[in-house]
């Protein structure tokens, strides 16, 4: 028995080594990320949480609740107590998944706080691909329907639906291959197992910089700062722009003054030079929207994806 307590004692000694500064405020604000740690959303909000804390006066803690293609995290976020201490990161799938499976929530169960990031989607191809331009790609696709393989990071996910919507607008038929995440789909195109891949930054950007991949189609309103030579598809005559947005929401019924306080703190966190530098390094496109315009964005996206999903299911 004595040994046992010796072990306990040893364990408690190890515990004394401080890794975290002790004495956090008891009421920190939690942000649910409905995906596993390490994804694009997780990275962005971890970086934002780090800078927002000092403006809020309380720590912002990121909690990962992965599962169910984000359904688990959103369900919990929607059912949290509406006191402003439990926020959820709202990303495009919030307006997609409810159309595909029965979920206990839609965007209407949340109060918008702030939109942080909005990234255009894009198609990447290998630098040695036979198509030199979007026009050649589309011509080939018209002549050989269903032959060009386009990878995406998961069936029914954001970039998959973007690819489907683009296909419809451009009037071609592509062969969509789902992968389990952005990493695997980019790996597949690097290995030449698929012809193109539908991604959203930061996925694949470093390979474009290294010259192994190139941007075939950029679905943005304006050109990217990082790649000023790459024209958008709109410039090339296809009226299409779409992307992924990432913001923060609180459960429905959160008091307006709490929303305002949170919004102001996160806005200051966004403007913090440390966060700005992190965002630039990750090649994500900061795009601030206040509560009201962010709510409108979610509403219109919800409607858009509702129509799109219905059409696919036909």
């Amino acid at each position: 028995m004595k040994r046992f307590f010796t072990i306990l004692f040893a364990l408690s000694l190890i515990m004394v080594i401080p890794i975290h500064a002790a004495g956090f405020p008891t009421k920190e604000v939690q942000v649910i990320i409905p995906w596993a740690a390490g994804g694009a959303t997780d990275l962005i909000f971890r970086a934002l949480a780090a800078t927002t804390g000092k403006y809020l006066g309380k720590a912002v803690v990121v909690v990962n609740r992965p599962g169910g293609g984000s359904a688990v995290g959103y369900t919990e976020g929607a059912q949290a107590k509406p006191d402003g201490y439990m926020l959820t990161s709202a990303v495009t799938p919030l307006t997609i998944l409810p159309h595909q499976v029965t979920t206990a929530y839609t965007y209407r169960n949340f109060e918008p706080i702030i939109n942080v990031v909005s990234d255009p989607s894009m198609f990447l191809i290998r630098s040695d691909a036979p198509w030199k331009s979007l026009k050649e790609f589309l011509d080939y696709a018209r002549k050989h329907p269903d032959m060009i393989t386009v990878g995406n990071s998961g069936a029914g996910g954001g970039v998959h639906l973007v690819a489907l919507a683009f296909e419809k607008t451009a009037g071609v038929k592509l062969n969509h291959i789902p992968f389990s995440g952005g990493g695997p789909s980019v790996t597949a195109i690097l290995g030449g197992h698929i012809n193109a891949v539908s991604v959203s930054p930061p996925e694949g950007i470093s390979h474009v910089q290294a010259g192994k991949l190139k941007i075939l189609a950029l679905f943005a309103e304006k050109r990217l700062e990082m790649f000023p030579d790459v024209p958008t598809v709109k410039e090339q005559g296809v009226d299409f722009a779409m992307g992924m947005w990432r913001g923060l929401v609180a459960p429905k019924g959160t008091p307006p003054d709490a929303i305002k306080k949170l919004h102001d703190a996160f806005k200051q966190g966004m403007d913090d030079p440390v966060f700005k530098k992190n965002a630039t390094d990750m090649a994500v496109n900061l795009s601030y929207l206040g509560p009201e315009p962010f709510g409108k964005l979610m509403a219109s996206e919800h409607e858009f994806f509702g129509k799109l999903v219905k059409e696919i299911k036909k």
Partner: peptide, 27 residues
Amino acid sequence: LGIPFAPPTAILLGALLIHGVTPGPLL
């Protein structure tokens, strides 16, 4: 390659990004 093949390396990738290092062929 800047591509995490295993989940723990995916998190390391995230850590690299947070520290301003973009993993990839140029790293």
